[in-house]
Design a protein around this nucleic acid. Sequence first.
DNA 1: ACAGAAACGGAGCGTACGCTCCGTTTCCGA
DNA 2: TCGGAAACGGAGCGTACGCTCCGTTTCTGT
Lengths: 212, 212
Amino acid sequence: MPSATTLRSDARRNRGRLVASARELFATHGVDVPVEEITQHAGVGMGTLYRHFSTKEELIDAVLEDAFSGLVDAAERAVEAEDAWAGFTSFLEYAIGLHATNHGLKDVIAERAHGAKRAQAMRARMRPLIRRMIERAQEQGTLRADFAPGDVPLIFWTSGRVIETTAGIAPNYWRRYLSLLLDGLRLGAATTLPEPTLTPAQLQRATRGRRA
Amino acid sequence: MPSATTLRSDARRNRGRLVASARELFATHGVDVPVEEITQHAGVGMGTLYRHFSTKEELIDAVLEDAFSGLVDAAERAVEAEDAWAGFTSFLEYAIGLHATNHGLKDVIAERAHGAKRAQAMRARMRPLIRRMIERAQEQGTLRADFAPGDVPLIFWTSGRVIETTAGIAPNYWRRYLSLLLDGLRLGAATTLPEPTLTPAQLQRATRGRRA
DNA sequence: ACAGAAACGGAGCGTACGCTCCGTTTCCGA
DNA sequence: TCGGAAACGGAGCGTACGCTCCGTTTCTGT
């Protein structure tokens, strides 16, 4: 079991091809592209893929690593915005814009399942940032007080669905949806929300479960 | 090819069992339950199913017929409400409550595809009713003016996703989501929506397409 | 130059789905 | 009662997926 830098030249080359191929296909078609399509597009065999990545999940996780850290960076920038509402909303617009561009990212974040190591770590780093964004906007009196951090996944789940349904038909339609939803988040909304937000435990179950 | 009433007694009995079995399983597990599970739960063989319904889609369509007409009834009642906003929102709450109870209905309405005859007819009957609801609420000055009938599927698509994700964890959480979204629909929202609504042609493509 | 370790690739396995085919059983009128 | 039409049921087909296995090829240090 040699260290990562001790790969034979052809192995390193093929690994690169696989990642590039997967990056492209995941972005355009989502993570459900068959592994065979990935290997063919990369010009390698199936065996080669599974020597480098013990599972398809692992490949997904590796390919999306960059996108994950890009999201965390955006969240860190958003937390520092003077206008917390602007920071929060522009973060959401950026993140969901990424979903529209990179369907693989959308699948991992907005769909259930697909919770590999790097995705998990990204979520963990994101959580306190989002909490800060929300707290600040509520302190500044721009975000309704009964919105909670546990409600943020709601935005991703639902936006993901809009993108899935309209991506090939009206690629920017998700902006209309997000705008609508954000208007419901502003302070001064006419109602108070029914039902509590989701607890961390509930969220964990929601993002893991498959059908029984 | 005998008329519908000229079925042999065992055939009529088994057809009833199939529909009952499918109704139950579709409601609890959605339309993705394997046909074999439906036939086993009904105590009949696969051949029996496919003699009565030439395709699984047709079975779905037949089983959901009642739910479809229930929806249309609710829409007709909603149109007549004095307070058009109340009519519109309580219709949405009723419809989405049905989605939470009957996952098969949700799959057909909130998911893409599954567009058989009766579902299609239900949609056609619903369209003018929804248009009236929206027009009236806008005339009464309670629904924002830039919301359009073409945006209604948005509500079903996204609520469907919320239900799918949280049904087993927080069965009423969708109410919180819907409340949030409806607050964004009220007149006096701070923004005007970006991006136009979907045209009928776009909607048709959105509710039909499968992945290429 | 060459041995052998490393990497390769794709046929094939296991699973799950919708649906069909056809030998067997059941019903029902004469 | 009994024959044939009607209905039955489930093994099996075709498809699509993730993944494995192993004979073949390629790289690399000596």
